[in-house]
Amino acid sequence: MKRLFLIEYHKIKHSRSSIILISAYFVFLTLIALIAAIKFDIGPIEFHLADQGIFNFPLIWHFNSFIAAFFKLFLAVVIVSMISNEYSNRTLKQNLIDGLSKKEFLASKVIVVAVFSGLSTLFVALISLILGMIYSDYTEISIVFSELHFLLLYFLKLFGFFSLCLFLGILIKRSAFALGFLIVLLIGEQIAWGVGGELLAEYGNFATKTDAFSFASQIKGFFPLQASFNLLHEPFTRLSAIQSVAKELGEEIVLNYQTTMKEIGIALVYILLYLWGSLNILKKRDL
């Protein structure tokens, strides 16, 4: 385990492009703190985002992990190019000839995925803790450390997404195509949901179009990227400001922000599929 970690650490620490991307990622994560600085005055209306409750414990764990998850693309690029470079430089072949087994090779990459996810989670936790301590209205220990499961879900979300990147890197072998495939997958899932919803509304046995799309959304939850996205539901409607506006409009927002065991299960099954698929490709493909 330590040896595999050291092998990957050696590969990454000498790669300037990887270091730049990783650094950029953590700089961007730090920028979450800048949200606190968003302030504007329009006549009598004074708006300070930090005062809207987004940095209140325990909401901050949910809010920050949801926002931070969008920056994962930086590390995704590192992971995909790390794999594709092993193919294009033929170093994967040489690693195996030098005595690394295919299982060890995959395990070393999974360690990178786990370390990236873990470091990012720790970083988000640290930033959230600092921002919360500065801006939160509640700083009682019991409140500060409640809802920490959002950080675990964040870790799982990153681990799952990076596992998909790892799988695509191994499957496609070219970083540009693998990243392109991710985008196609993202668009494809939305189109499938839209078209599926329309078809269900037209030909399905649903009372309303909303019901049809609700069912389509449930199906969408089984798609790879949506399964990952569903691990952290959006936190915005939890904000008191949004709830007040909704009330004024005569609407009451009642949403379940908790991730269900089913959603976690789907994400875990996908992770297993990605890793199993990666190992099988490595085993079966000639180099």
Binding site: K11, S15, N89, T91, K93, Q94, I97
Partner: peptide
């Protein structure tokens, strides 16, 4: 393979 030294076709390094 840890007791073998091998070069196949062309040198493969980072």
């Amino acid at each position: 393979l840890k007791k073998v030294g091998a070069i196949i076709e062309r040198p493969n390094f980072y």
